[in-house]
Design a protein around this nucleic acid. Structure first.
Length: 185
DNA sequence: ACCGCGATGCACT
DNA sequence: GTGCATCGCGGTG
């Protein structure tokens, strides 16, 4: 089990270290294969313009879940990071399903297994993550984070779906994984 | 393969 | 009123 101190570092260290970690919610989930980093000086980050009710968790202690609604439909999960009081977060973008696959299939309505968790909105659907998880600690139920077994081969590239600061190579992935939201170039 | 678009909530100008 | 840290579907090459 990963403790909260894992997240008491710069998101630029935490994000690549999350690749290969197993994320479970009520025992359902899989191996993290894709993450993006957002820091406080980042125009693409929700924290860039300062605290609001929505992003309040980002300005709190590290090791907690920041869950927000995207495009009015989807939920997205972040792990809050923090070094020297900065508001930073790692957006969990894709998992390789390993635990509770039948449950995830039922929640995701017949998509191929490869697409069960191949995007930030998709994985929240598969793991039933909603606003109720916003602000919950990641090292206590219903969450669980299992340390990776071996050192993964990590690839990087520009982040997806943003318009500002889009050139920053702060997207991290497991090399060659078929469970990514999109391939790396 | 790519491209367009609708669904829908909410923070912010 | 505008713009998203999205997704899935339906159209066209």
């Amino acid at each position: 089990m990963l403790g909260r101190d894992f997240f008491a570092r710069s998101v630029h260290e935490v994000a690549p270290d999350l690749i290969g970690v197993t994320l479970l919610v009520d025992g359902v989930g899989g191996t993290i294969v894709e993450v993006e980093a957002y820091d406080q000086e980042d125009p693409a980050s929700h924290a860039f313009r300062g605290p609001t009710p929505r992003n309040a968790v980002m300005f709190g202690a590290p090791g907690f879940a920041y869950v927000y609604r995207s495009y009015g439909i989807h939920w997205c999960l972040n792990a809050v990071c923090d070094v020297e009081g900065r508001a930073e977060a790692a957006l969990v973008r894709a998992l390789a399903p390993t635990h509770g696959v039948e449950e995830m299939r039922a929640r995701r309505g017949g998509v191929p297994d490869r697409a069960l968790c191949s995007g930030p909105g998709k994985l929240c659907r598969a793991l039933a993550i909603t606003r109720e998880h916003d602000g919950l600690p990641l090292d206590e139920p219903p969450f669980a984070l299992l340390e990776r077994a071996s050192e993964p081969e990590i690839v990087t590239g520009p982040r997806i779906g943003i318009t500002r600061a889009a050139e920053r190579p702060w997207r991290y992935g497991l090399a060659g994984s078929p469970f990514l939201s999109r391939p790396f170039r």
